[in-house]
């Protein structure tokens, strides 16, 4: 799996490169500037671009804008953006075009190497990965807007959160230590309650839930 890294902190850039190489990924480029990231992605056409949001030249959200631009120009390239601080608006923007292969994680998640590399693989395969923190932010906010959420049982709410993070039924079952069958039952109940169209596609499922939470 070929990866381009965008990170302006040299130490962290090196660290990320080592982690990914150790996990067996092929880091084809690592750059410290948003413009260079767009150019480099166009040149190498990697499977995944991993970038920090706050990047030169403006030290604002140049990394996020570079990621969105790469998505527009090369829909085949998956992007994972990292940030010190998660915002609902960024998640919505990233998922906004409805295309697959997007991730939005807290920067510190890279320390949990196994989970992180797993997330990268899922995104590269067209999956969606949202940080639990941003999901809980969205659910908490949506609770004020949709009464239906309060009608879900605590277990169903857990399942909804994991679905929103982009987990597969198998992963949800593993996390909650229940059977996949039970997960299917929970999800269908959630679909009924929230009046969502049933879909087996994990990515479409995330989009539908996120759209619901953001509405």
């Amino acid at each position: 799996m070929r990866i381009v890294i965008g990170e302006d902190e040299a130490l962290l850039r090196t660290g990320l490169t080592h982690v990914m190489q150790a996990a067996g990924f092929d880091v084809v480029a690592s750059v410290g500037d948003a413009h260079e990231l767009v150019r480099s992605a166009g040149e190498h056409l990697p499977d995944v671009v991993v970038t920090d949001i706050r990047m030169p030249p403006d030290h604002k959200d140049a990394g996020l804008r570079a990621a969105l631009e790469i998505r527009r120009e090369h829909p085949g390239i998956a992007v994972v953006v990292l940030s010190q601080h998660l915002q609902r608006a960024y998640a919505v923007e990233l998922l906004g075009d409805g295309s697959s292969g997007v991730g939005y994680l807290l920067k510190q998640r890279i320390a949990d190497i196994d989970t992180f590399t797993d997330d990268l693989r899922r995104v590269a395969a067209g999956g969606t990965v949202l940080d639990p923190e941003v999901v809980s932010l969205m659910v908490a906010r949506a609770r004020g807007h949709h009464d239906a959420l309060d009608r879900l049982t605590p277990r169903q709410q857990q399942v909804l959160a994991l679905m929103s993070e982009g987990r597969t039924n198998a992963a949800i079952a593993r996390t909650l230590s229940i059977t996949e069958r039970a997960v299917v039952q929970h999800t269908s109940h959630i679909y009924d309650e929230l009046d969502l169209a049933l879909s087996d596609d994990d990515h479409r499922r995330v989009l539908a839930v996120i759209r619901y939470l953001s509405s």
Partner: peptide, 8 residues
């Protein structure tokens, strides 16, 4: 200094 204020 909130990140969102700086970034957006």
């Amino acid at each position: 200094m909130p990140a969102a204020l700086v970034e957006r």
